[in-house]
Amino acid sequence: MVYVVSDSVGETAELMVKAVASQFNGGNVEIQHISYVEDIQDLQNVIAAAKYSNSIIAYTIVIPTLKNFLDERAKEEGILAVDLMHPLIDAFTQKFNKDPKWQPRLMRKLDDNYFRRVEAIEFAVKYDDGQDIRGISKADIVLIGVSRTSKTPLSMYLAHKRFKVANVPLVPEVPPPDEVFHLPKNKCVGLVITPDKLNEIRKERLKSLGLMPMANYADFNRILEELDYAERIMKRIGCPIIDVSNKAVEETADLILAMLKKRGAGVHE
């Protein structure tokens, strides 16, 4: 039997043991998991069990006090205890001239961050441009504004920071969903832009689509009407408003997070 001991899940140790076992007797080896070891007593129990069953201990423990205790007690009891991590940690320390953090479960944290980011990106795509109003109540942040106020780029940028963002376009002819009026004020942000800048952006957008730049979409009076309507909606909601006219997406995103954090939205990066 091999006791696989870790101050984390122990997946790394298990894979190593199975890889080595495959070289002997067809890989048939009994593995006993001891995961999330946190104190000396946990190790005392493992050592007693391993001695009684004449077993090997294979471990991935990064907390120095626990590692040292296991090494010393295993030696005293005549138990073969194999450290699967420290030879490589020592090599990294020597190569990069940098000390490790000596913290367990860091890889799991990295994995969790990755999956949270993927989930947030999928959320931003699904609830982009008001496609599904169910996303409004589920979002960490809801962006509202007229067309071409960077709602989608901001949603994606914030998603990469692991925030679930829904965005809703404001159009005079289409009443906004009731859900936006019931949002906590610290979850919603209004985006505005100067008429001249929006006119310029929309004209370029029409050109890229091969349409006439004088279409109603880029008409100046129409733009004034939309912006006026949007501001009325934002004031009714009572949400913070950001002028994105001359701001990069990154700058606007930082402002959004700062605003919501100040308002007590529980926004943390």
Rank of each mutant, 00 (worst) to 15 (best):
A258H: 00
N199S: 14
V180Y: 05
K164W: 06
L110E: 12
K161S: 06
E11L: 04
K164I: 09
I193N: 03
I56D: 07
G210C: 02
G145V: 10
F181M: 08
F123H: 00
G26Q: 04
A50W: 07
S137G: 12
G190D: 15
L183V: 09
R263W: 15
Y36K: 10
V146P: 09
Q131S: 06
A166H: 00
V171W: 03
F69M: 08
N246T: 10
N221F: 12
E250C: 02
T65I: 11
R232E: 05
R236A: 10
T194E: 08
N216C: 05
Y3L: 03
N45F: 13
Y3N: 01
D99I: 12
A81P: 02
F115Q: 11
L70D: 04
K164L: 09
L170F: 05
K18C: 07
H86Y: 13
M259G: 07
V29Q: 11
I201L: 01
D140V: 02
A91T: 05
D254C: 01
L255R: 00
S208Q: 11
E251D: 07
A19E: 12
P195A: 15
A166I: 03
G190K: 14
Y157S: 02
V125R: 14
P64N: 11
L15M: 07
D140F: 03
T252P: 00
V5C: 04
E119R: 09
V20F: 14
P175C: 02
R108G: 15
K151V: 03
R148L: 02
C188E: 06
F24E: 15
Y59A: 09
S155P: 01
A58P: 00
K185N: 13
D228K: 02
E251V: 07
K126W: 09
N45A: 09
L154S: 00
N97C: 11
P87D: 09
E173V: 13
F123M: 04
D71W: 07
F96M: 12
I89A: 14
K207W: 08
D254E: 05
S245L: 03
I47P: 10
L43W: 07
L211R: 00
S35V: 13
R263S: 14
P64T: 14
L224V: 08
P195H: 10
G266K: 15
E173M: 05
V125E: 12
F24H: 11
Y229D: 04
V244Y: 04
R263F: 15
A253K: 00
L43T: 05
Y157Q: 02
D90P: 08
L158D: 03
T60M: 13
A91M: 07
D219L: 11
I201P: 00
I136N: 04
S155T: 01
A230H: 03
P213Q: 00
A13M: 09
A58G: 05
D140E: 05
P184E: 09
I57P: 01
